[in-house]
Design a binder for these strands. Structure first.
Lengths: 230, 230
DNA sequence: ACTGACACGTGACGC
DNA sequence: TGCGTCACGTGTCAG
């Protein structure tokens, strides 16, 4: 067995004192007591009693949370403690997946940087092409200005834009048209947007590395960090 | 104690046999063995050993799920088993809330000005109140700056903000928290946001009245007018 | 009879 | 030191 072993298993048997019954009573002193059964015995049994009570409190706390978890999974009752936990972990994973899926269409920023550019179906066959572009990254003070400037420099026209924040993350989505129908413009937009998110990555790497070891907050979904309107 | 009690607590002490050591060895027979220590003893110790091994397997299963849960909460390591479970239940509740929230509010700007402020259910009972606020109005150049400034002056903290545009209309939605639980802050936020939309109405009334009779575009959902990044 | 699941008390370890 | 947390073995009940 390669796992670390703690607890009483690796030690020689003791079981000197046994506490039992509704009230703490010393029942057995099977091993060598060694010394007299005077005041030290009562002290020992009292310590033992408080110990077991503390342990019972801990168990009650854990089981209370476990029961409150039972109320959150679909098949709440009559479930193994282990399978309940398994159900909980799958529930969390599924919730995260659906949350991120909902954010696909709803533009909720995730915790990973990304740039996506794709062509939408031609909306009216008038030679112009419709593109859907989005970038997701950390927010920094001049992000919107930079984005504005970059988009102005591209041979596209922004039809609709939507910026949403979640904590310190920000996602900006565009609906843009381009008269140049080839795929070159797709790569162009993607490169420009990638430049922006990489610009921040490089900018952050220099300062972040000291006092923010690896915060990487997972999707805890509502947090109180900075946002666009700070 | 009114809870059902199971296990060895309510029974007189037994501890007839004790299994210990790396391999199962019978160490002590403290109580009355009663019968001979013949084949029945070896059978008993074998049963005891398989029992403890099964229990260890069960523990390992539970702890494995617990560890995989640790990987899903934000502060994964060095956390109490109980507080870990508490964190998990709050995580699930928050994920459900945000999931339901994401599905309901599409945040598409309408063509009528409006300000909505409402209280969301307490998200974790930690005294802070969660508010949902949104305003919808025409877009003008300094709208975002004004909103930013107003929100900064309020005794609230913006947790999430989302701005979407449709044509020349813009809708800005906030998820904000406030430590002051009374309804005063609701009115405060509503008044501040109403100030903003009225500010534009007054500003527009002076100039608009001549050359923009009644544009009133309906919800044609994707159009190519001005946007936030123009 | 046997297995799995639970609660309990207890030793070890950390602060 | 004492208090809290953990893993362990064990008694006990249900299927």
């Amino acid at each position: 067995m390669n796992v670390e072993k703690r607890g009483c298993l690796s030690t020689p048997v003791k079981h000197s004192l046994v506490l039992d019954g509704e009230k703490g009573e010393l029942v057995k002193a099977c091993g060598r007591v060694g010394k007299r059964n005077g005041v030290s015995a009562t002290k020992t049994v009292e310590a033992l009693r408080s110990h077991s009570e503390a342990e019972r409190r801990r168990r009650e706390r854990i089981n209370a949370h476990l029961e409150s978890l039972r109320g959150l999974v679909p098949n709440n009752e009559k479930m193994d403690k282990a399978t309940l936990l398994a159900e909980v972990v799958s529930q969390i994973k599924q919730l995260r997946e659906t949350a991120s899926q909902a954010s696909e269409g709803l533009h909720i920023p995730m915790d990973t940087d990304e740039v996506k550019v794709g062509r939408v179906e031609n909306h009216s066959g008038d030679g112009s092409f419709l593109l859907m572009a989005s970038l997701c990254c950390e927010h920094w003070p001049d992000l919107l200005s930079d984005v504005r400037q970059v988009m102005k420099s591209l041979p596209v026209q922004v039809v609709k834009s939507e910026v949403s924040t979640l904590g310190s993350r920000v996602k900006i989505a565009f609906l843009i048209t381009s008269v140049e129908g080839d795929d070159g413009v797709v790569g162009l937009v993607r490169a420009a947007l990638s430049d922006i998110v990489e610009k921040f990555s490089a900018l952050a790497e220099s300062a972040e590395q000291l006092f923010i070891p690896r915060k990487r907050q997972r999707v805890s979904c509502i947090d109180s960090s900075s946002n666009l309107f700070e």
